[in-house]
Amino acid sequence: MLINADFSLPAIVVPKDDDWQCSPESGVDRLMLDRIGDEVARATSIVRYARGSSFPRHLHAKGEEFLVLSGVFSDEHGDYPTGCYVRNPPGSGHAPFSEGGCRILVKLRQFDPADLTPIVINTHDSIGWQKSDDGNTESLHLYDYGSENVQMVRLPAGQEISLSTNPAGVELLVISGSVEYAGELLPVESWLRFPADHTAEIRAATDTVLWMKSGHLPLSLPDRSIRG
């Protein structure tokens, strides 16, 4: 399966009710944003857990990264409320569930093999938000590894930002509020991905929070043969 698998092209997904697909487990559905592979895949998705749903224990041979968008996501290691950003490094495993239901942004099989640092940050509780030099925006640093950078960004209504991406691209998810891009209004949970050396102008239509990741996209189509 290939979904938005050409990383040399921009990609935008606006969530719609009929875009959700069932996973192998009852009560767990997925909105696929990009994907290379079938059930075991290099994938970026929004995953929706119904109340009381769960997934069997499994390993993440090439790592898992997720942000809790709503509700509480849980596993045997703890509970992760709305706003938690988590990185489970290659070789880690868990048995996830949600007692009350939740939605998460999740990225699978996208770690450097040497990136072995587990991370748990509650972005709602963090005191690390920093104002920009002009005082118009705020950002919260989440993680750096090599050229990869992950952060949250707060934009007031009407604020414009220019994304002149580095040689390994940039990816955004609208966490709250809405943004305008190329004349289109993009609501909560809209996902945008821009390739290397691409310039994009984004405007906050309302007070907005973005999850933003840059410097991580492959320069060519990854090997579709997904193993382990």
Rank of each mutant, 00 (worst) to 15 (best):
D75C: 02
R35K: 13
G78M: 10
F55T: 09
D79P: 02
A43I: 06
G63V: 02
P81G: 07
E76H: 11
S23N: 13
R87L: 13
G78Q: 15
K62P: 00
K16A: 15
Y85D: 08
I46C: 03
S26Y: 02
D19K: 12
P10A: 12
I46W: 04
R48E: 03
V40L: 14
V14T: 15
F55L: 15
V14L: 04
R57H: 14
G83R: 06
G52F: 11
D75R: 01
M32R: 12
D79Y: 05
D6E: 08
S26C: 09
G71D: 06
L33W: 05
D38E: 15
S54K: 11
Y80C: 05
I46E: 01
E65D: 08
C84Y: 00
V68I: 14
G37K: 13
P81S: 12
R48T: 03
F66T: 00
K62T: 00
A61Q: 05
Q21V: 13
I36K: 08
L67N: 03
A5W: 05
G71V: 04
G71I: 00
F7I: 12
D34C: 08
D38V: 10
F66K: 01
I46G: 01
P15Q: 15
L59F: 12
E25F: 09
G78E: 15
R30K: 14
Q21A: 14
T44Y: 03
D34Y: 05
T44E: 04
R30Q: 06
D18Y: 07
D34N: 14
N4P: 10
L67A: 04
L67R: 07
V28E: 00
S53N: 04
F73R: 00
Y85L: 08
L67T: 06
E64D: 13
G83W: 05
F55Q: 07
S45L: 12
V28C: 03
V86Q: 02
V28Y: 01
A50F: 01
P89T: 07
Q21G: 09
M32H: 09
S53L: 00
F66G: 01
S74F: 04
V28T: 04
A11F: 13
T44W: 02
P89R: 09
R42F: 14
L67W: 09
P10Q: 13
R51Y: 02
Y80Q: 06
Y49K: 00
D79C: 07
M32W: 07
V68E: 07
L59C: 09
N88Y: 05
